[in-house]
Design a protein around this nucleic acid. Structure first.
Lengths: 248, 248
DNA sequence: CGTAGTTTTGAGTTTTGTCAATAACCGTGG
DNA sequence: CCACGGTTATTGACAAAACTCAAAACTACG
């Protein structure tokens, strides 16, 4: 592929063409020319699992599209209790424009590839492009919806329902390398979180998470090998376990 | 005050001038001319406590600024378990542009005054005014921050900490009629929620909420009369009770 | 193979939930 | 002003769910 700019300046950069985020992510709002400009200031970077990208009370110095892997956003109480408040999967957009008063810690849960964009550059960009701003508003509203959905899980579900809901959530969002299965749920995947992280996402203890997983395993709903590798055997039963009716 | 339009068309409508939302709410982003246009299609309306403004899975047909009172947004599980996912106080903006896939029920918790704007009108407005869109994005991001903050309460705090956190939250947000006290927290106020609603916001049962309130009362941190009327006696102790360290 | 880190399992305790009874509050009408 | 009925809140006794602490099993990796 040549690098010649066509007269209109609307060529889509090579890098962005391959990028998953091109279709569903924030960049989908951009014109070819804008993409080219964005591409100039953005940077593809890889991080190993369990890297702290950014700690408390500091502004993240860049925005990013998650291209691969899972990011966890968490909050801490002063005595160390932790709550994971969001997981971000590809092609989610990561970052908080207009600076954040909320103190969040941003860590990679698995190996992660990001397309990073320096904060400053992105914010001028945002001011120029109403399309981008609308896209960002839409994505933020969706995140808000999902966060509220998870509040129901945290506040009102039992340990069993929480664990089942977590597995379903992962099955719905995770990307499995060379899987041609693009149905609604992945039935086979590796958990991107340790038991401790799962507990911190679900508002439970490690032991409770482990016990509930064991029960799901023993009742034949799923299989777990090597701690992380999950196969969902009975999807309907798992979906049912996300919200069990008292009666019956 | 005369009603003559000045040459520039930038007069601020009488109604909006008085409106609380004028300063902090969504309308602060508007120019005088825009306010006038918005004012033509908006409508001030009062609702008694415990009115369902909008039920599940329907789009709210209007947007609104909350001028007075408290709105609760809640979600239900199929067996009736309820979780309140947000409380909206004046001058919050209420509504979900671009339609919502999430099924929310919107009810008044107290008597409420709204400045309503028909959905259609607001959305064309939004498309025209980048300032409004940015304002909306900012407010949505703040809501997301607050929701995440509350997730920590739901997932990781004890019953006592939850109840204390709730009281502090109310003290920080509620408007008290003819109070000249504009400090950070109102020390005297009426609870806008029943014990049942408090329980549904905190992920607890009514009985647990009641017991924790009794304990706070008996330890001299606050007084409660007529069920709803709260006086905070020892604010520091209450703030401390929001996040208690294991040690000690 | 051995070691460090994770996960699972067990036993006992604590917190919170459940069920049931009592008490307080609110509006209405005598 | 007080009595009444309906609703809402409190309290108690008990049960269940989830947590804590401790030990054993598994996994990954040198």
């Amino acid at each position: 592929m040549t690098d010649n700019e066509p007269p209109g300046g609307a060529r889509i950069p090579q890098l962005c063409q391959q990028c998953t985020a091109r279709h569903k992510g924030i960049c989908g709002a951009l014109t070819g020319a804008e993409l080219a400009r964005m591409n100039k200031i953005s940077d593809q970077r890889k991080f190993p699992a369990n890297t702290t990208l950014y700690g408390d009370s500091q502004d993240v110095p860049y925005f990013a599209n998650v291209l691969e892997g899972v990011i966890k956003l968490s909050k801490y109480l002063s005595d160390g209790r932790q709550q994971i408040v969001a997981l971000q999967f590809a092609p989610d957009f990561m970052g908080r424009p207009f600076s954040s008063s909320s103190e969040l810690s941003v860590e990679t849960a698995s190996d992660v590839t990001l397309c990073t964009i320096p904060r400053r550059g992105f914010e001028t960009f945002l001011a120029d492009s109403p399309g981008l701003q609308e896209r960002l508003l839409r994505q933020t509203l969706i995140e808000l919806d999902e966060t509220r959905e998870w509040m129901v899980t945290l506040g009102r579900k039992t340990a069993r329902e929480k664990v089942a809901s977590f597995l379903v959530r992962i099955a719905a969002h995770i990307q499995v390398p060379d899987s041609d299965d693009d149905s609604r749920y992945q039935l086979v995947f590796d958990l991107p979180l340790t038991r401790t992280d799962m507990a911190d996402f679900l508002g439970l203890t490690v032991e409770t998470v482990s016990r509930q997983l064991s029960k799901l395993r023993k009742s034949g709903i799923l299989e777990i090998t090597h701690n992380r590798h999950v196969e969902i055997i009975d999807l309907d039963a798992l979906l049912g376990a996300c919200e069990e009716t008292a009666a019956a």
